[in-house]
């Protein structure tokens, strides 16, 4: 293993997978640092699961290379498998086994001895809140519990890399929150790769996001930076009580303002919707000072940055437009 593998947990170069004429993923290049939580984001059919299947050694890529912890997923698949915990899409489990029995069995398969597999099964059951159902047959469990069994399985051997394909599918809101917290806690100690098409989930859990569409990477950056570099403006909403003409004049000369929309609000107030460029720092302080300077009244002042959803829609639409132009 070289020095690169000490820094990078995943190194993907020119990864392509074709099924006949259909290209599921096309020339993917990305790296993931150790301890990072990376979200793979994309609509259905974007190539997320194919990428995860290749990284988990289940599928071979048509071309390109992928390394996990410095080991090639194709040529050194056994070494890679020792270092990963993988929860596939739809979370397949042996329904004819009991929860504790299943986790012990999986522990043994992952190279733990009898005592270690018992101890680790107990630990992950605690972490994933499965102790109440430890003796239940997996087939009798609700979808939420089954998801947690899959998650517990992925954590079992304390792998360096945890790959989770749609980990919160079927969980109720409380369980989603608990799973999200659990995944967040894994960061630092483990590298986590999560695929999801739920934008909010990725936004809440991951340090970095990789946006895929039609098998290609559209963007790869940390979530906050991605929002700012997309060139999308931030929006400030303020409710100000002031003479309308003076208000219009002051806002017109406000630094960095791109657009303003003023409408009447309840009780002599005006609702001002202000758009600023990405390069403008938080304008609320200056706005507040302007109101105080003019002896006006202010009863609301909020800022909204573009969400990951906005970024995602923006990028996928842009790609669609480009393709249409080419045609």
């Amino acid at each position: 293993m070289g020095d690169a593998s000490k820094e990078w947990m995943i190194e993907v170069k020119g990864l392509t997978k074709r099924y006949g004429d259909f290209e599921a993923i096309s020339n993917l290049n990305f790296t993931v640092k150790r301890g990072e939580i990376l979200g793979l984001l994309g609509p259905n059919g974007a190539g997320k699961s194919t990428t995860l299947r290749i990284l988990s050694t289940f599928l071979a890529a048509t071309s390109g290379t992928a390394k996990v912890a410095g080991f090639d997923v194709f040529d050194e698949s056994h070494e890679v498998r020792k270092r990963i915990g993988y929860m596939p899409e739809n979370n397949p489990l042996y329904y004819d086994m009991r929860v504790y029995e299943y986790l012990k069995y999986r522990g043994r398969l992952k190279g733990l001895d009898a005592r270690q597999s018992r101890d680790r099964a107990e630990t992950v059951m605690k972490e994933c809140d499965l102790e109440d159902v430890r003796r239940k047959m997996i087939r009798q469990l609700s979808l939420g519990y089954r998801q947690r069994v899959g998650l517990a399985d992925a954590l079992l051997s304390e792998p360096e890399l945890i790959i989770l394909d749609e980990p919160t599918l079927g969980l109720d809101p409380n369980q989603v929150r608990a799973a999200r917290q659990l995944i967040k806690n894994l960061g630092g100690k483990h590298t986590v790769l999560i695929s999801s098409h739920i934008l909010h989930e990725i936004e809440m859990t991951c340090n970095r996001v990789l946006i895929l569409n039609q098998g290609k990477i559209l963007a790869s950056d940390d979530t906050t930076h991605l929002q700012s570099v997309m060139g999308q403006s931030s929006r400030v909403v303020a409710e100000i009580k002031a003479p309308l003409e003076d208000l219009k004049f002051s806002l017109k000369n406000f630094e960095g303002l791109l657009a303003v929309d003023i409408s009447a609000a309840e009780g002599d107030y005006y609702l001002c919707s202000l758009s600023f460029g990405a390069e403008t720092a938080d304008p609320r302080e200056e706005l507040y000072k302007m109101v105080v300077r003019n002896n006006w009244f202010l009863r609301e002042l909020t800022i909204s940055r573009p969400s990951l959803e906005d970024v995602f829609v923006h990028l996928t639409r842009k790609q669609q437009d480009e393709e249409e132009d080419e045609e």
Binding site: F58, R81, K110
Partner: peptide, 14 residues
């Protein structure tokens, strides 16, 4: 058909 083949073949077994 149940998909367990995927978890089996991604465990460190040959």
């Amino acid at each position: 058909s149940t998909g367990t083949y995927e978890i089996l073949m991604t465990a460190p077994v040959n």
